[in-house]
Design a protein around this nucleic acid. Structure first.
Lengths: 334, 334
DNA sequence: TTGAAAGCGCTAACAA
DNA sequence: TTGTTAGCGCTTTCAA
């Protein structure tokens, strides 16, 4: 890489002259400026990012820590973050906690050494189970702002972007009830994390309000999801509605129901959190609760960048944005 | 963040003493070393990454440019890269080209200013269509090594990690033929990119060798995949085999066949490139050609890091690793 | 055993 | 209009 020094030497001027010329300083004479710029162009000079970061004490880089990149929702959020960040000239360094508290801590510490200006993160499952948040507080105390999304720690003061999980399943369940469904089951693979619990609660509330009794199927890591759902449907022939906490449960429910000669949506309605792409994986398509993942990511990035740009160390003005889900009907419900 | 300077001041020693003490230099006396380390511990001192990068002229950061993060295969590769990189103390900066040549160029240039030590990338669709590679060569000339994976430019000299696409579909198709299938169709959403073409060629070769005639369905962006496949199956009642270039085509084929009262695998066999997770999205499960995405990512990272660590500017020893696919049978074939 | 000083590449206050 | 200098945080050579 060419440096200012080399340009200066070749042009027989000082380093600062070159620097100023390239930054269009008024101080520099027209012809000098031109000469400098031409040579810089010729050599394809680009200011060294690292030197700039050191000098200006900011890196224009955001640390993103997500629990699982294979999760379609999370990778979509990442997409949203990347797009918004890059729009503002920020890069993102991505770390994957793999649902582990230890790895989350490690990544946070590792990047809190000047590598990034702030963080966007969604908590690891283990972090949520153990409810440990000290590492998050420590990071903020060091002057690195954090924006949490989706799986947030409510007792840490910071900016947050969340989804109306409770309302979403509450409404979805009410919809099925309004269709006349009598025996609605809630199926979830994400029973351990905060958002999973909220979704279950929303379902529960609607069921109890309708004086029905809740029925919940929890699918654990390593379970054969097809077998679990098959068993459930075979055992409970009266099930006529499914609310799924994530896409796999929804899609498999439809496919398995059909395999068992149940008509969808005549005999059973299925609705679940999912994306449009995955909803294609069943015929009929899954009716989906959309989370607007990209918008969540963009919003998180926006909030973080705004905070990084704000001069005032405004302490207590943290805000929580709720991105409302929307319901996309399909042929899997009446 | 605490700096060496602050520690030095508080301890009434020089900056270099502190630096040496923390790096366990032999030069420093036992007790001084201890005092320094204790205070550093107390203040949770961490060496500033940016300063180190500037000094040592390397960032321990890898730039990863991928065309699409919502693609399950690509995000799995990313996962593999991240894990391997982090094992070696490297961070990754992720840019998403969104299949655009322009964005790919931009990202490359943006990071080639000292932000990263090298690149791992998979080409954007547009880059492959226009077959433009100058930006890749330019980057390498600047001294930044590149490792390409999956969608590679064969006429750029660099390390590569690829999949045996041709052989995979050739063998898969031959398997279907061996089952006695007579009318096998190839379905693809990724007709425009190199790997898609290779997969089609593998299918073609097997078909022609068996003296059958190839039948190919191409699904374009924006197409309704369910409708396209439905139409195909309805029109060609004799289709008894499907080779899918990616998971969606495979899964939808099974689901749609069943919807049309075709028995899988009795009347029709389906096999396709996919992952275990997505193969769950049909009953019976899709028989899959596994690409070992994580291993591909890990291998790419390994190759790049090896090159970064090699002192010799060994020019002509670029290598291409082929990660063989494996076939995972299921109930969607005989 | 410790410290001073140079230098990585850059910007900016100040001097000429 | 141009140049000198200091400094961002760190390592390392050389001097004390």
């Amino acid at each position: 890489m060419v440096t200012l020094k080399q340009l200066a030497k070749e042009l027989n001027v000082s380093i600062s002259t070159v620097s100023k010329a390239l930054n269009d300083s008024e101080e520099i004479g027209e012809d000098t400026r031109k000469r400098v710029k031409e040579l810089a162009e010729l050599y394809n000079y680009k200011p060294n990012k690292v030197a700039l970061s050191l000098k200006q004490n900011k890196t224009k880089t955001i640390g993103v820590i997500i629990p699982d990149i294979l999760n379609h929702f999370l990778s979509k959020v990442l997409f949203g973050i990347e797009r918004e960040a890059s729009k503002h000239g920020y890069n993102i360094i991505t770390c994957i906690s793999n649902e582990s508290l230890e790895k989350e801590k490690e990544s946070l510490e590792l990047l809190a050494n000047g590598s990034v200006d702030g963080f966007i993160l969604s908590l690891a499952e283990e972090t949520q189970i153990k409810n440990e948040v000290q590492h998050l507080r420590d990071t903020m105390v060091q002057g690195l702002p954090i924006v949490m999304f989706d799986r947030v720690a409510h007792d840490v003061m910071c900016d947050k972007v969340i989804v109306d999980n409770f309302e979403a399943t509450y409404n979805a369940t009410k919809n099925l009830i309004a269709e006349g469904r009598q025996n609605i089951v809630f199926i979830s693979k994400i029973d351990d994390i905060s958002v999973g619990k909220l979704r279950e609660r929303g379902y529960n509330k609607a069921i109890l309000e309708a004086q029905m009794s809740p029925l919940v199927l929890k699918i654990k890591k390593g379970d054969d999801i097809q077998q679990k759902i098959k068993k459930l449907l075979k055992k409970n022939k009266t099930i006529d509605g499914v609310v799924a906490a994530e896409s796999a449960s929804g899609v498999v429910s439809i496919n398995m129901a059909i395999n068992l000669k149940t008509k969808v949506p005549k005999d059973i309605s299925v609705v679940g959190f999912s994306s449009k792409a995955v909803s294609n994986h069943s015929v009929p398509r899954l009716a989906i609760i959309r989370q607007h993942a990209k918008r969540i990511g963009a919003m998180a990035a926006e909030m973080l960048i705004a905070r990084l740009n704000s001069t005032t160390e405004s302490q207590a003005d943290f805000s929580t944005k709720v991105i409302k889900t929307s319901f996309v009907k399909s042929e899997s419900t009446l």
